[in-house]
């Protein structure tokens, strides 16, 4: 239990004393994971909408694929991105491996199936005649889709939270494509793993607590947004 207590003290100390490394790692974590989440939303919400609303062959198969993708181990995505970005790989010329960009790509890859599947599920909850009714009121296709997304905005917020939660807490892909380079690609999860293997358990727990605080802060913000919404009912 000493370790937990020390970890808590260490976490508070690191944050309060403005430990530059910790803040840099925290900043990078937020930057990478939030960017990856936004990208996953940009790609995944339209795809999820197509899967939820489209009427075409293979729709169910694609939905099943997306649902399976939700359980995709981050390490597998990390490995895939790594091989793609290898010097000898198809995108090797870009020189992106072991950069935050690579981490964003991998994490977006992890979050996108989650966003697709959960978006489809969220839109399924909306009345099936919703789009028809919006068009029947004179909405253009784009406006009708916008109204649909607005209608589903609470579940869609949850989708974003799920995506962010998945990527901010994963370590496999971040380690593999980022390389855990000090000051460059070290994020809270990989830093915690490193601290653990260095035997600095208190520091590791401190990083873990910072991670927890971030996840909590983000969720709190979103939950408050949701409540503001429901309060105006």
């Amino acid at each position: 239990m000493d370790v937990l207590g020390d970890g808590l003290v260490e976490a508070v100390r690191l944050l309060l004393t403005g430990d530059q490394d910790t803040w840099a790692i925290t900043g990078l974590t937020l930057r990478v994971s939030l960017t990856a989440t936004v990208i996953a939303l940009l790609i995944g919400v339209p795809l999820g909408a197509v899967l939820a609303l489209g009427r075409f062959r293979g729709r169910r198969v694609l939905l099943a694929i997306a649902n399976t993708g939700m359980g995709l181990p981050p390490v597998v995505v990390g490995l895939f991105v790594t091989v793609l970005l290898w010097r000898s790989g198809p995108l090797g010329a870009l020189g992106l491996l072991y950069t935050p960009t690579a981490m964003v790509i991998a994490q977006a890859g992890i979050a996108t199936p989650i966003v697709v599947a959960l978006t489809a599920a969220a839109l399924h909850q909306v009345d099936p005649d919703f789009l028809l009714q919006m068009r029947g009121l004179g909405a253009t296709r784009v406006r009708a889709l916008g109204a649909l997304l607005t209608e589903a905005k609470l579940p869609l917020l949850a989708v974003g939270m799920a995506g962010f939660g998945a990527v901010v807490s994963e370590v496999g892909a971040a380690q593999m494509v980022g390389g855990n380079l000090a000051g460059e690609t070290r994020v809270l999860t990989t830093a915690a793993v490193l601290a653990t293997s260095r035997g600095q358990f208190a520091l590791a727990i401190a990083f873990g607590l910072v991670l927890l605080a971030i996840a909590f802060a983000v969720n709190l913000a979103v939950t408050f947004a949701q409540h503001r919404q429901t309060a105006t009912r």
Partner: peptide, 10 residues
Amino acid sequence: LALAAGCGTD
């Protein structure tokens, strides 16, 4: 966005 997150380190 991907680029944006990738840049800005030292």
